[in-house]
C-alpha cells in the first residue's frame, strides 16, 4: 500500500496533546519553574539555579523523613504481600462464600481516605475506642498520640487493614486464572501442598504480584491523608513521612522554592524505585 502524506493529520493529535499538556506537562513545568526561582511577590522573583536542590539535599529533617518513609514502605510490602497471598489462598474458590468474602474484603477499599483516619482515631482512643480501650483495659499502656512506637503500630495497622484487601483481590484473581488441570496434574505427580504453591501458584501469580508490589510501593511511599488525619505526623516527628514533611514546607512555611525542589526529587525517587522493582520482578522467576 502506498503511504500518502497529509499534514492535516496533525490536527487529530491535538486533543491528546492538549489533555496531556494540562494534566502533566504544565503542572510539572510549574513546579520546575518554582524550583529554580526565589519568589517574594508577583513581580519580585530571582533565578537561583540549583540552590534549592542543594539546600533540600542537605536538610536533616528531610533525611529523617526519607529514612522513615523507606522503613514504612518496606514494612508495608513485607507484611501486606505475604498476608494478602495467604488470605487469597485461604479464601473459598466458588459459591456464595466466595462472593461474600470478596465483598467483605473490598469494604475498606471503598472508604474515603480521610474517613479512614477518623475511623482509626476513634477506634484507638484509650477512653472510648473499641481497640484502644480494650488494650488499655488489658493493662497495656497504649496511646498513639503520646508514644512514637504506638503511633507507628497504629499507622501500620491502619495501612494493613486498608490496603491488604487490594493485594488479596489481585492474588485471588491470579489464583482463579489457574486451570484446575494444574492441580490434578500436581496430585497425580504426588506434589505436596508446598510444592503446589511454590511451583504452580506462585509462578502463575507473578504477573499480578508484580502489579501488587508496584502499586503498594508507590501508594505507601506517597502516603499522606491517613497518617495526617490520625497523627498529624506526630508525636514529635515520629510519623512525619515525606509527603507530610513536604506539605509542612509548602503550606506551613510557604517555602515554595524548596518545596518544589523537594517535589521533583520525591517524584524521581518514586520513579527510580518503581523501575527497580519492575526490573527485579521481571527477572525473578524467569531465571529459575
Amino acid at each position: 500500500m502506498e503511504k500518502t502524506k497529509d499534514n492535516r493529520a496533525w490536527f487529530l493529535v491535538i486533543p491528546v496533546f492538549v489533555i496531556v499538556a494540562f494534566s502533566a506537562i504544565i503542572p510539572l513545568m510549574t513546579v520546575v519553574n518554582y524550583s529554580v526561582q526565589d519568589i517574594f511577590g508577583p513581580n519580585e522573583r530571582f533565578f537561583v539555579g540549583v540552590e534549592w536542590f542543594k539546600e533540600i539535599l542537605h536538610d536533616e529533617r528531610l533525611h529523617e523523613a526519607l529514612l522513615r518513609q523507606f522503613l514504612f514502605s518496606g514494612l508495608v510490602l513485607l507484611i501486606e504481600i505475604p498476608l494478602g497471598v495467604a488470605i487469597a489462598l485461604a479464601m473459598p474458590k466458588k459459591g456464595w462464600a466466595a462472593s461474600l468474602s470478596l465483598v467483605l474484603l473490598a469494604l475498606p477499599l471503598l472508604i474515603p481516605w480521610n474517613v479512614i483516619g477518623t475511623i482509626w482515631i476513634i477506634f484507638t482512643r484509650p477512653d472510648i475506642g473499641l481497640l484502644g480501650a480494650t488494650i488499655n483495659g488489658l493493662g497495656i499502656d497504649f496511646d498513639h498520640t503520646a508514644a512514637p512506637l504506638d503511633a507507628w503500630i497504629t499507622v501500620m495497622l491502619m495501612e494493613v487493614w486498608h490496603w491488604t484487601p487490594l493485594v488479596v483481590l489481585l492474588a485471588y484473581a491470579g489464583l482463579q486464572a489457574i486451570p484446575d488441570a494444574f492441580y490434578q496434574a500436581a496430585s497425580i505427580d504426588g506434589a505436596s501442598r508446598w510444592a503446589v504453591f511454590r511451583y504452580i501458584q506462585l509462578p502463575k501469580m507473578r504477573g499480578v504480584l508484580t502489579i501488587a508490589i508496584l502499586l503498594r510501593f508507590m501508594d505507601s511511599f506517597l502516603i499522606y491523608a491517613e497518617p495526617f488525619v490520625l497523627t498529624g505526623g506526630g508525636p514529635g516527628n515520629a510519623t512525619t513521612f515525606l509527603s507530610i514533611h513536604l506539605v509542612k514546607i509548602a503550606v506551613g512555611q510557604f517555602d515554595l522554592g524548596p518545596a518544589a525542589a523537594f517535589s521533583i526529587i520525591y517524584f524521581l525517587i518514586v520513579l527510580l524505585f518503581s523501575w527497580l522493582f519492575y526490573q527485579a520482578l521481571q527477572n525473578v522467576g524467569k531465571g529459575e
Binding site: P179, A181, Q184, A185, Y199, I200, G285
Partner: peptide
C-alpha cells in the same frame, strides 16, 4: 495424564 490445556511447571 495429559490434558486439553498445556500443563507444565511454569518456572521449570
Amino acid at each position: 495424564m495429559v490434558y486439553q490445556q498445556f500443563i507444565n511447571y511454569p518456572s521449570f
